[in-house]
């Protein structure tokens, strides 16, 4: 049973979207280069948890970025996919941060990271079934109610699946969207990593994804490994340039979605600013090709809903 909830009504008040341009994940090491060159970046994204201190240089930098660029805040600590209740203190911190900086977007992950009072610092996987669906829906509702805005939920990179899953990831995400009114963040690198790790066709995932609800795309580089039977294992390490395969998938996603805010994530082995900027410009060029006069909307969208 599903009826419009308080959070759904809240979601009708949409925040101004991120521009349909290429953005960059902010790293402290690049602050001076950004300040000096005032790069033509569409937006910056930051990890919420790095800006939850009371004061100091992090806030000074973020205030400066927010003044000059649209901002996306990306949470890694709410543990929305966790079995336990959300950490109210942490949700309160997220709320304060969102109120202070008024980002265009707040996003989180379909994953969990907290057990009791311990933070595990990774985005851990969950089975997709009725039990976990109810939890995720309740948690997304709670976050949206607390923040008074629609959030985006990101598809995870996973290395294992569960016998107790009865939904595909796309159907699961579709149900969460349907029941909470949240939007989606499509991580194309995660799609590729999962396709290799679980042996499905990445293009099929992109074709079936609820593109109508996608308000942001993430692109990143992966690391290569092998599993116990010497099968290919790809790890979402954010440590390398975006791969050729992921650029291709991205173009496929854009052909369905039209141009949409796209982030380059590079969090480990962080390169010099010009290299990161070049990656962003590559995405910007692909977005530009999709950006026809007056066309900032969805293209060739077929209803996918929960049947994808």
């Amino acid at each position: 049973m599903w009826a419009p909830s308080a959070s759904e009504r809240i979601c009708e008040r949409r925040n101004p979207a991120l521009p349909a341009r290429a953005g960059v994940g902010f790293k402290d090491a690049h602050f001076t280069a950004i300040e000096e060159s005032a790069p033509a970046v569409g937006f910056f994204e930051v990890h919420a948890e790095n800006f939850m201190g009371a004061g100091g240089p992090p806030h000074a930098r973020l205030t400066r970025l927010r003044r000059d660029y649209p901002l996306s805040i990306h949470g890694v600590g709410l543990s929305i996919g966790g079995a336990q209740a959300l950490d109210r203190a942490h949700l309160g911190r997220v709320k304060s941060l969102v109120e202070r900086y008024e980002p265009a977007v707040f996003s989180e992950h379909l994953a969990w990271s907290t057990r009791a009072t311990s933070f595990l610092n990774d985005l851990l996987p969950l089975p997709y079934n009725e039990t976990t669906l109810k939890r995720v829906v309740a948690h997304v509702d709670e976050v949206q109610e607390a923040l008074g805005r629609r959030i985006l939920l990101e598809n995870p990179a996973t290395y294992l699946r569960f016998e107790s899953s009865i939904y595909s990831e796309i159907d699961f995400l579709g149900e969460v969207v349907h029941r909470t009114g949240c939007g989606l963040l499509l991580d194309v690198n995660n799609t590729y990593v999962c396709a290799v790790n679980h042996g499905f066709v990445a293009e099929d995932y992109i074709d079936a994804f609820q593109m109508r609800q996608v308000e942001e795309i993430h692109l990143a580089g992966y690391a290569e490994d092998m599993d116990e039977v010497r099968g290919r294992l790809r790890i979402d390490a954010h440590c390398a340039p975006v791969s050729v395969a992921v650029w291709r998938l991205y173009e496929r996603a854009l052909s369905r979605r039209g141009s949409v805010a796209t982030l380059i994530e590079w969090d480990n082995d962080v390169p010099a600013w010009p290299i990161l900027m070049a990656e962003a410009m590559r995405a910007e060029n692909l977005l530009e090709r999709r950006r026809l006069p007056g066309d900032d909307d969805l293209r060739s969208e077929a209803p996918h809903g929960a049947v994808a």
Binding site: L160, R161, F162, D225, D227, E228, L233
Partner: peptide, 12 residues
Amino acid sequence: LKATHDLPPLRR
């Protein structure tokens, strides 16, 4: 847990 094979998914 499930992998693409039936061995214990230690590496994964």
